[in-house]
């Protein structure tokens, strides 16, 4: 007998990603209240840091391009990036967990779709939406609070963010694999991301930390991303320094993403073998 001849190949795998994005957009749209709440939370956080900033002596903050910046200008990139890390890491890690929890993972695996496509597809919507949200947030608070961001720094800062995305993605995929096996892994993800964000200089200058922690924090990928975005936005340094940040972030991202995919595929095969893929 003849089937409807479904396409199988790399091209068709790419087309399937669009189906995942549409599915997740429709699902996100069906939760309108949390969607609005998320945005309101971000705005409230900006207000909070604005008032905290009124108490902070700008002289204690590092100068960018020889200019003193306000605390809100200093922390805005940190808030945006910290929210990006928390949200992206959480969503990537929980994407598979949700599929497992709702019982749709086995249905996905029964389609002629590669596990990598399923993994990428399950998070692609968030990986598009969250950076977009980060950029919109920065623009909105810059306008609302009159922050002095250098417009020419937007593109270089975006490039740093792009180089940083696979790093977070890889951690999330590894976490998804761990969750697939141990069922409960989101607590570790939250703890890990909180530690990385705390010691990244996102909310306060790193030189406030003890020397040895400062040294460790300076090689934290989030520190590199935060600094890499602040320089062009606050110091107007344009593309200077972006290359250095990207040169460090790209290999880190490659390692993180590879390790994540390997972990996830191993976990998927193990759970299939055990027959516990649909259990949560």
């Amino acid at each position: 007998m003849t089937s409807l001849a479904p396409a199988v190949g790399p091209g068709s795998e790419l087309r399937k990603l669009a189906a995942f994005v549409r599915r997740d957009f429709l699902i996100a749209w069906s939760y309108r209240l949390p969607f609005i709440g998320e945005w309101l939370g971000l705005v409230l956080q900006a207000f909070m840091f604005y008032f905290v900033g009124l108490m902070v002596d700008p002289a204690k903050l590092p100068a960018f391009g020889g200019d003193q910046v306000s605390y809100l200008e200093f922390v805005a990139v940190g808030i945006a990036l910290a929210a990006f890390v928390a949200l992206a890491l959480g969503r990537v890690a929980s994407g598979m967990q949700e599929e497992q929890l709702t019982g749709t993972l086995e249905s996905l695996l029964m389609t002629p779709t590669s596990p990598t496509t399923i993994q990428i597809g399950s998070v692609l919507y968030d990986l598009i939406y969250i950076p977009l949200r980060t950029a919109v947030f920065l623009v909105v608070i810059a306008v609302a609070f009159g922050l002095d961001f250098d417009a020419s720094g937007l593109l270089p800062a975006s490039v740093v963010l792009l180089a940083f995305i696979p790093f977070v993605w890889g951690l999330g995929v590894a976490s998804a694999g761990t969750t697939l096996t141990f069922r409960r892994g989101s607590g570790f993800v939250g703890l890990g991301s909180s530690i990385l964000v705390l010691f990244s200089g996102a909310f306060f200058p790193l030189d406030l930390l003890p020397g040895w922690i400062e040294a460790l924090a300076s090689v934290n990928p989030i520190t590199i991303a935060v600094d890499g975005m602040r320089e062009p936005l606050l110091a107007g340094s344009g593309w200077d320094g972006v290359g250095r940040a990207v040169a460090v972030l790209v290999p880190l991202s490659a390692v993180s993403l590879t390790a994540g995919i390997v972990t996830f595929r191993w976990a998927l095969r193990r759970e299939r073998g055990r027959g516990t893929l649909g259990l949560y």
Partner: peptide, 26 residues
């Protein structure tokens, strides 16, 4: 499958079928 938990309950029946159809390469 035997259970009900194999569909995306937040989207319509039509969208469920279109999504899985596209994963089948249509």
């Amino acid at each position: 499958p035997s259970g009900d938990r194999s569909l995306y309950l937040r989207i319509s029946g039509l969208e469920n079928l279109v999504f899985f159809g596209r994963l089948h390469g249509l």
